[in-house]
Design a binder for these strands. Structure first.
Length: 481
RNA sequence: GCGCCCAUCGUCUAGCGGUCUAGGACGUCGCCCUUUCACGGCGAAAACAGGGGUUCGAGUCCCCUUGGGCGCACCA
């Protein structure tokens, strides 16, 4: 019988869920889901100073938006301090840990000297074998691991391979602070063990911790979980991700108009590949994802590729779903209020009807909204500079002369208007473009839009003619200098 | 300073000793389609960091150099 896979995502709630954390969560989720296992969520809130409720909410919200669900209730690490202390107590009894009475000043001096002299260990283990009777009165001790002095500690990492440390390079780190609170190193091991975690998938900034934690597992006689340390994500310039780059909360990506499925697809291909495949449905992802195919070098974050993927998923989405998606993110978009105010059922139907051509002109939901603006803009339509430049006196005259022909149409369909405009262009001896562009400017206020006859149909007879007249009238009375 | 990790087109990557005159994707640049912008189609430029080995044969294995990254707290 094979062991059920249990992974976990364990963020510390000291900030938002950033892009690296999102990918770590995704990998854990994929690995568990692809194997009928579980992904647990543990909030590492032992740093009482920096942990906040807002951060916890942002993380849960981010995971939910990305569609990464976890099994059971989230575990709050701080609630487990008693258990952590009890484990340390056991270790003390077993002799695998000891009390250290060093003062912070003493430690600081020790570190400085160690660095200056190029020593491997920063802590010299001075209380390791000292008689407890020597303990100075009135000083509360910290508890340190009695780590092996010789030999080596190796981590068999699914991504990094077999990594070995000489034990002489690892010192006796603290398990329990003098104030009785557990350190991260101890808490992680105890919690992962108690929660039955079988696979620890996390950023490779923890690779060194993997060795230290292995020593704790060994001291406790517990099974070491499978480790997989994945490379970090860097900024476009190869340096650490900064806010300027993309170290934003996932909520920022939502506000930029990216779809969760596009984010997932982008993130999964950052450091992981499956042959030449670029596009993955969720099912394909969970089926194909595995640890050994994760690369070992850090990947750079590339907005252009994310956008491209997002454009793909928008084009692929059903029109009705896309409108639903728009409605969902509206509260998160800066430009959302303008549309929210006008989103009547009628307008919604118009949006759905316009989606086929709007979606292939946009890479994000924000751009999609921008492209749809002409649908819900008020008359008289504001013209952008290019559109205004296009509406010359001649162009306005053309529009004025065209209006009666359009107004006479029995059916207001794109085929009917196209027919009328083509006939008109031919009579005037002008190319279709010469009339189509001014129409576009008058109808949308811009020089780019979906096909102009489609725009006419979408807008409807009354609105179209009114917009055309708005511009044609002015053309009839040209302001001459 | 000490420890550990990494290194193929601008970017994400395929490649697991011969099938590599190195493949795909994004981006870039052409051309086609076309009422605009897109979408779509076709095509192009673009990489094995450098040096030593091992081998009949190296992008693929080993070493060194160089260049990146991560860690080194009574933070997580």
């Amino acid at each position: 019988m094979t062991e059920t896979v249990v992974t976990r995502f364990a963020p510390s709630p000291t900030g938002f869920l950033h892009i690296g954390g999102a990918r770590t969560a995704l990998f854990n989720w994929l690995y568990a889901r692809g194997r009928g296992g579980k992904m647990l969520l543990r909030i590492e809130d032992t740093d009482r100073e920096r942990s906040t409720k807002e951060a916890i909410d942002a993380i849960l919200d981010g995971l939910t938006w990305l569609g990464l669900d976890w099994d059971g209730e989230a575990v709050y690490q701080f609630a487990r301090v008693e258990r952590h202390r009890a484990v340390v107590e056991e270790m003390l009894t077993a002799g695998t840990a000891y009390r250290c009475y060093c003062t912070p000043e003493e430690l600081e001096a020790m570190r400085e000297e160690a660095r200056r002299e190029g020593k491997k260990r920063l802590y010299d283990g001075r209380w390791r074998d000292r008689d407890p009777a020597d303990a100075p009165a009135g000083i509360k001790p910290a508890i340190r691991l009695k780590a092996p002095l010789t030999g080596e500690t190796t981590v068999d990492d699914q991504v990094q391979g077999r990594v070995t440390w000489q034990n002489e390079n690892l010192d006796d780190f603290v398990l329990l602070r003098s104030d009785g609170t557990p350190t991260y190193m101890l808490a992680v091991v105890v919690d992962d063990h108690d929660m039955g975690v079988t696979h620890v998938i996390r950023g490779d900034d923890h690779l060194n911790n993997g060795a230290r934690q292995t020593q704790i597992y060994q001291a406790l006689g517990w099974n070491v979980p499978v480790f997989a340390h994945i490379p970090l994500i860097h900024g476009p310039d190869g340096s650490k991700l900064s806010k300027r780059h993309g170290a934003l909360g996932v909520d920022a990506y939502r506000a930029m108009g990216y779809l969760p499925q596009a984010m997932r697809n982008y993130l999964v291909r950052l450091g992981w590949s499956h042959g030449d495949q670029e596009i993955f449905s969720t099912e394909e992802m969970t089926d194909a994802f595995d640890l050994p195919q994760i690369g070992r070098s850090p990947a750079r974050f590339d907005f252009a590729k994310l956008e491209s993927l997002n454009g793909h998923y928008m084009r692929e989405a059903a029109d009705i779903d896309l409108v639903g998606e728009i409605k969902r993110v509206l509260p998160h978009l800066a430009a959302g209020a303008a549309l929210a105010a006008k989103l009547t059922p009628d307008m919604e139907a118009k949006l759905v009807a316009a989606m086929p051509s709007l979606k292939e002109r946009a890479k994000t939901l924000v751009e999609l909204l921008e492209g749809a603006k002409f649908l819900y803009a008020d008359r008289p339509l504001p013209l952008d500079d290019k559109a205004a430049a296009l509406l010359t006196v001649e162009a306005r005259k053309l529009i004025r002369d065209l209006v009666p022909a359009l107004a006479a149409l029995a059916d207001w369909t794109s085929t009917a208007t196209e027919q009328a405009v083509r006939v008109f262009a031919e009579e005037r001896g002008v190319k279709l473009g010469a009339i189509a562009q001014p129409l576009r400017a008058a109808l949308t206020g811009r020089v780019t839009s979906p096909g102009i006859f489609e725009v006419l149909q979408l807008l409807g007879r009354d609105e179209s003619l009114a917009r055309l007249n708005d511009q044609a009238v002015q053309g009839a009375v040209p302001a001459t200098a």
